[in-house]
Amino acid sequence: MSADGNHYAAVNHWMLSTRPDDAGCGALVGRPLKEADVEPGLPISVEAVTWHSPESRPRHFRINHGSAAAPLPQPAHDVLTRAVTREVPPGRCAVPRGHRP
């Protein structure tokens, strides 16, 4: 536990010492992504972060590091703009409510 009372998350890591084909890579990477509850369907330029707080529901941040707008898998109410959004603008962040279970 840190000095401010926050708990550190358990960490799992995987190592690979070969070069699998595309199917093998998909099978290998699919399992830890599913176990980590990584959201499918986001572009590679979008960073997905979930913040948990005991005082409120989880917040799902979507940060677009790309130079083009990045579509969300489904429309959602953005807590930051207070409007329904279907994408994250380039260089911007969205906090879609109800976007993830």
Results as ranks from 00 to 15, higher is better:
2 S>K: 15
3 A>N: 10
4 D>F: 06
7 H>D: 13
8 Y>I: 02
9 A>R: 08
10 A>W: 02
10 A>N: 12
11 V>T: 05
11 V>R: 07
12 N>W: 10
13 H>K: 15
14 W>A: 07
16 L>N: 01
16 L>Y: 08
17 S>C: 02
18 T>L: 02
18 T>S: 12
19 R>W: 13
19 R>N: 09
19 R>A: 14
20 P>Y: 06
21 D>K: 07
21 D>M: 04
23 A>F: 09
24 G>T: 05
24 G>E: 04
25 C>G: 09
26 G>H: 04
27 A>V: 03
28 L>D: 03
28 L>Y: 10
30 G>D: 01
32 P>Q: 06
33 L>C: 08
35 E>L: 15
35 E>R: 09
37 D>I: 14
38 V>I: 09
41 G>D: 09
43 P>Y: 00
43 P>A: 03
44 I>V: 14
44 I>F: 15
45 S>M: 00
45 S>R: 03
45 S>H: 02
46 V>M: 13
46 V>N: 13
46 V>A: 11
49 V>K: 04
51 W>H: 09
52 H>E: 07
54 P>S: 06
54 P>W: 00
54 P>Q: 00
56 S>G: 03
56 S>D: 11
57 R>F: 05
58 P>C: 03
63 I>Q: 13
64 N>A: 03
66 G>S: 09
67 S>F: 00
69 A>Q: 00
70 A>H: 00
73 P>R: 10
74 Q>G: 08
76 A>Y: 08
80 L>D: 12
91 G>I: 06
95 V>S: 01
95 V>R: 07
95 V>C: 12
96 P>N: 05
97 R>D: 15
97 R>W: 03
97 R>N: 06
97 R>M: 06
98 G>P: 04
100 R>T: 05
100 R>D: 12
